[in-house]
Each structure stands twice: as structure tokens, then as C-alpha cells.
Design a protein around this nucleic acid. Sequence first.
DNA 1: ATAGATGCAAATATTTTGCCGCCAG
DNA 2: CTGGCGGCAAAATATTTGCATCTAT
Lengths: 167, 167
Amino acid sequence: MSSSSHRVSEGERINVDQPTGKLQRELRQRRIRLTSQRRVVVQVMESAPRHMDASEIFELAHQIDPNITRVTVYRTLDMLKSQGLIDELDLLHLRGHRHYYESHGPRDHIHVACIRCGKVREFESELYEQLMAQISRDCGLEISIARTEVGGLCADCRAQSKSAPPA
Amino acid sequence: MSSSSHRVSEGERINVDQPTGKLQRELRQRRIRLTSQRRVVVQVMESAPRHMDASEIFELAHQIDPNITRVTVYRTLDMLKSQGLIDELDLLHLRGHRHYYESHGPRDHIHVACIRCGKVREFESELYEQLMAQISRDCGLEISIARTEVGGLCADCRAQSKSAPPA
DNA sequence: ATAGATGCAAATATTTTGCCGCCAG
DNA sequence: CTGGCGGCAAAATATTTGCATCTAT
């Protein structure tokens, strides 16, 4: 396995850090049965260039191992969610009612999406952590999950709007 | 039907000043056809003590006017969403895959939910606005939607945990 | 060996669509 | 009057469940 422990650059978000492994390792550590199907599903998720919904995960996983069914994908996602290893997003429902999944990174980040072209970027900020601290303090909440999604027109799409109006 | 420029009252917990009306007023202003069904749906949404999903909205609306169908609720919600008058939330999927709806307030707020008791509180913060400004600047995004949901154990539930462990 | 996963098929739930008669503006 | 809207039923999606079988540990 290519153990590249160096940081990925800004825009791209392919998970190269723990080669074929962060989720898998977590599962093993937690004594959770690592079946071949689960291995495929987590690999698919970890190597995806962008967030996928359950159907997309299924398609890819099924291509790799035709035995894998939708049911297994749902069950695996549920398991990972209940283990707190992945997040379920809806990305502002910009493209329907799909739910997208992503494996937890080390830090919380914000999803910033363009409502026109659909590009999604991840954003981290000191301010965000301050905000969470404030919420925790003011609401007396012991925060375990947080999600922020922001949508709008990106610079590129604004530029294009000038020649061609919105769809 | 009921005179259009009259207030109907009779709701129960419906304020007659603006509440029975923000959405309705917006729709009229925008020359969007105000059918009796739409009136009922927006009233239900505006007078609800908490966020509801499509089914709940349907139940209540259907109680008020048995003619109203699920389809109409869906179509009305779509319309309101496309007008940017309501937001669609999932509240961290704490209770399954439901989507909740809420009419836009004047200011953006954060939804803070307890993962145990399910209580949802709304939270506003200067920091939040700063964060949005930062995102807008750094990502070159003209923000039109934003959503933040935070989950964790509230103080009450933490207290209870000491005597009775998690469900 | 055995608790726990998977597959299959069918049950549920949720959302969308086509068509036509009806009502708000 | 008329174009948009709601109702109905059915299609298309999405998710969950029961049960027998298989497998990772």
C-alpha cells in the first residue's frame, strides 16, 4: 500500500493519508466484524473524489463486488453512522433529497457549495471553532455533532452569469 | 371562499398581527396564486410550535381541510422552497431521514439539538455572521443559503445520565 | 462454534408524474 | 375567461424488515 502521509492540497479531497484504511482500522480496533462487503464499501467511500449518496456508493461497490446489495450498503452506512465514523449530509438539498456520506476528518469543516455548478468545497476556520465553543457554553450543550452547509454563487458562475443568465 | 382581506382567526394559537401572514403576504406580493389549500399549509407551518416534516404538515392540514392531499403539500413546499421562503432541514437526522421545514426568519440562526431528548433550540450569534463574511470573502461566494445544525447532550440529559444511562 | 452479517424478496415510506376538472385573479 | 392549481391514482424512489444461510473471528 502506498503509505503517503503527506497532506493533500487545498481543493482536492481524496483521502490519501491512511491508505485504504482509516475506517477499516477503526472498525478493527472496535472489534467490529470486517466482512469483505464492508471493506469494499468503506474503500469506495474513502477513495471517492466527492461526496456520494447511497445509490452511488452502491453502484460502485456493486461494480467491484457484484454480490453486494443495496441492503448491505444501507446497513453498513447505518453502522458507520452509529459508530460516529461517518456523517450524513444533504448539501442543502441542492440536487434533490439525496443524502450524502463522508467519513469524518480530523477536524470539523464547513461545506461550501455553489448552487449553480454544484461544486463543493470544504472550509475550515478558527472562527468556526470559536462559534462551537460559544454554543457549547451558552446552551450548556456537550457537542458531539455539528454540520454547516453554505450555498451561493461561486465566482466562476457569477462571471458566467454576465453573459448567460441563470438556468 | 373566506374574504381574502379579512383575518380569519379561529386558529387557536395563531397570532393575528403578522404571523398569520408573513408567508401569505409574501405570496400575494409576488403574485403567486393563493389558494385555500396553500393558505392552510402556510398557516399550519407558521403556527407550529416546532419544526415539522412533510407528513406532519400534511396530517394537520388535512385535519383542517380534508380535501388537502399529500401531493398538494409536497407541491406547496416545493413552491415555497423555490421562492426561498422556507428552509428544508434535516436536524442532523437525529430521528431518521425526515426533512423538516421552517419559514425563514429575519436573521439566520443555528439549530441546536439534544441528541437524547430531541429538544431543538435556535441560536443567533455575531460570530456566526462573522463566519459567513469570512466564507464569502475567502471562497469568493455570494452566499444565499446557510445552515448550521449542532447536536449533543443538553444539560438536563447529562444530569439524568448520572442516574439513568443512555437509552 | 457462534454471534453477527449478508442476500433475497417483500413490505413500507417517500416523492414525483400524468391527466383532467376547477378556481383565483 | 384562462392558466395555473389541486385531486386522484399510479409510477418511481428510497428505505426497512423477516428469515434462512453463510462467515469472520
